[in-house]
């Protein structure tokens, strides 16, 4: 029985007519224009450099509104600077003339007044400091302390405005 099964198996696996018939099986081709018909329905991705730009833009957008605000302000500042420079360059002669007039009539008196006020304030401050009569090292300590306080304030502000900052989360947490 087993011998017969193996014989049958061999007959199926080594049948020359079946092999010839199977070898005669050919490929069929679709109608001409198949490639174009497929391509008309395929959405090809944008070239790599555009994909990179898009992904960069996406990652920038993901970093938060603050960055977008900063980018917007930078663009606005740069644009307005260029516009201003252009305007000045185009109207240099007229501007110079009217500025000279303005400076003589308004600018100089204001400048003199500002100088007078500054000199008086500085003199008063100096006299005040002299009247307090603190030793030099104390003044130095006040100066260093003030600078450090300023640096600390900037650092804290930076932490607060970062998206997801723990300090901000604490501030926004429901009580």
């Amino acid at each position: 029985m087993r011998e017969r099964t193996e014989k049958d198996r061999a007959a199926v696996d080594d049948d020359p007519i079946l092999d010839r018939a199977l070898a005669s099986l050919a490929h069929f081709s679709p109608a001409p224009g198949f490639e174009d018909r497929v391509m008309a329905r395929v959405v090809t991705p944008a070239p790599m450099w555009i994909q990179r730009l898009r992904s960069r833009r996406r990652s920038l957008a993901a970093t938060g509104r603050l960055w977008r605000l900063a980018a917007g302000l930078t663009v606005a500042f740069t644009t307005s600077t260029f516009v201003l420079i252009g305007f000045v360059a185009l109207n240099a002669a007229g501007l110079k003339e009217s500025l000279n007039g303005l400076l003589a009539e308004v600018g100089l008196p204001i400048w003199r007044a500002l100088l007078g006020i500054t000199a008086r304030v500085a003199q008063d401050a100096y006299l005040l400091v002299q009247s307090v009569a603190l030793p030099g090292p104390v003044w130095a300590a006040i100066g260093v302390g003030g600078s450090l306080t300023m640096v600390f304030n900037v650092w804290m502000l930076r932490r607060l405005i970062q998206p997801g900052a723990p300090e901000m989360a604490r501030l926004n947490a429901p009580h």
Binding site: A26, H27, F28, S29, P30, F34, E35, V38, M39, V42
Partner: peptide, 15 residues
């Protein structure tokens, strides 16, 4: 490249 992939496989797939 898309067209090349179609050219390579259109006959086998269609068959």
């Amino acid at each position: 490249a898309y067209r090349e992939l179609i050219r390579r496989y259109q006959r086998p797939v269609f068959s």
